[in-house]
Simulated assay, not measured.
Amino acid sequence: MHAVRRRSFAAALLVTLLFVAGCTGANSAAPETDTSENSSGAFPLSVSHAFGKTDIPQKPEKVVTIGWIAHDITAALGVTPVAVSSTSSDAGNGYSPWFEDQVENENNDELPLILTQTSDGPDYEEILALEPDLIFAPHSGVTEVQYERLSEIAPTVPYEQEAWLSGTWQHVTEFAGTVLGESERAEQLIKDTEQTIADAAAEHPRLQGTTIAFGVNLFEGSDQLSFYTSPEDPRVALIHDFGLVDAPGLSELEADGFTSSISLENLNDIDAEVFVAWGKPEQSQRTLDNPVAQRWAPIAEGRYYFTEDSDMTMAMSAPNVLSIPWLIEEGFLDDVEEALDGGAVIRSAP
């Protein structure tokens, strides 16, 4: 078996399985509104979404965000939320490092309240006490019942089509810009982030055209590996933006929700030059120790990059204008390139 080199980063351990349930692609068209001048930040405006329409009378200033991604983009647009959903992080404090940096160092604000989650959804009384003028949940699992209750507190904008379906990172940024009256700033963020991606890709020419299988390491008792295969999944779309391409064989797999799975016995049908996956440390070891998986070329030849780090997993799973630059700065592409050379890279949980 190829020797494994592990990388550690200082913070507390916290790896969650929530990533299986979120983040896939959706319609990337511009958000539908009833105000012809909304691109310039005009209010009032009416925003269409999965549960109907929401009227926003004026530019929001006290925003509560629910789910993934929204809090990052809201903060990047200069509006620090008053409360956010907890984010799985290595620090274990409910905030990602890129969100903390944006709020404290760029916006010069204090970190917002972490929302309490109950069996019925968010703590409505807690949100009511904050007196928000907008509740924003474009990448979330908010139900229609929860939407109705939240709408009694403040104008609420959930996802446009389906739960956990917010489209590309560009689209959800544009959507947030419209809702928050910061469309021009959103467009600039998109341009800047696309340039950051292009520059990073140019610095790693060997990755251009490299075939990749991107998935999740083995769960206990499983005899299958699962891969992300939808081109509209933001995880997959970001990988493509970096110049990597889907490994032959992936398109033949039948999708089951957010992933496509294949029996370990048929792994050789996936002709990947590099295997990228996330999971807890025991999942990494389970994959590496499995005698059938060991026969798959990326495992046998050490051409894999595993992350057991919650921050990196979240950055890969919910890419946005804050997390993408962080992922690049943290050496994701450097590590994938090293894995391509047989470096057997594992980014360990701290």
Rank of each mutant, 00 (worst) to 15 (best):
residue 80 T to E: 05
residue 333 L to M: 06
residue 51 F to H: 11
residue 210 T to A: 14
residue 52 G to Y: 12
residue 95 Y to S: 03
residue 61 E to N: 13
residue 96 S to E: 11
residue 305 Y to F: 15
residue 98 W to G: 02
residue 257 G to H: 08
residue 270 I to W: 09
residue 41 G to A: 09
residue 136 F to R: 10
residue 242 F to R: 08
residue 135 I to E: 12
residue 267 L to M: 10
residue 75 A to N: 02
residue 232 E to R: 14
residue 259 T to K: 07
residue 3 A to E: 12
residue 230 S to C: 02
residue 118 T to Q: 11
residue 229 T to L: 05
residue 27 N to Y: 13
residue 340 L to C: 03
residue 300 A to Y: 03
residue 252 E to L: 11
residue 207 L to P: 07
residue 337 E to I: 00
residue 63 V to T: 05
residue 307 T to G: 10
residue 31 P to Y: 04
residue 201 A to S: 15
residue 320 N to K: 10
residue 69 I to L: 08
residue 166 S to A: 15
residue 75 A to Q: 02
residue 118 T to N: 10
residue 54 T to L: 06
residue 140 S to M: 04
residue 75 A to K: 05
residue 57 P to W: 07
residue 57 P to E: 15
residue 62 K to G: 00
residue 302 G to L: 01
residue 205 P to A: 10
residue 194 E to A: 03
residue 239 I to P: 00
residue 129 A to G: 08
residue 338 E to W: 00
residue 282 E to R: 13
residue 20 V to R: 15
residue 117 Q to D: 13
residue 249 G to M: 10
residue 102 Q to K: 14
residue 1 M to V: 07
residue 55 D to C: 09
residue 277 A to W: 04
residue 103 V to A: 06
residue 126 E to Q: 15
residue 284 S to M: 06
residue 208 Q to W: 03
residue 174 E to A: 13
residue 34 D to Y: 12
residue 94 G to T: 08
residue 324 I to E: 03
residue 250 L to R: 08
residue 206 R to L: 08
residue 331 G to W: 06
residue 32 E to F: 13
residue 89 S to C: 10
residue 99 F to T: 09
residue 95 Y to G: 04
residue 299 I to Q: 00
residue 5 R to W: 01
residue 201 A to N: 06
residue 90 D to G: 15
residue 336 V to H: 06
residue 236 V to W: 07
residue 181 G to I: 04
residue 116 T to H: 13
residue 195 Q to K: 15
residue 34 D to M: 14
residue 97 P to R: 07
residue 100 E to I: 11
residue 297 A to P: 12
residue 115 L to M: 12
residue 198 A to R: 14
residue 187 E to R: 14
residue 277 A to I: 01
residue 260 S to T: 05
residue 161 Q to E: 15
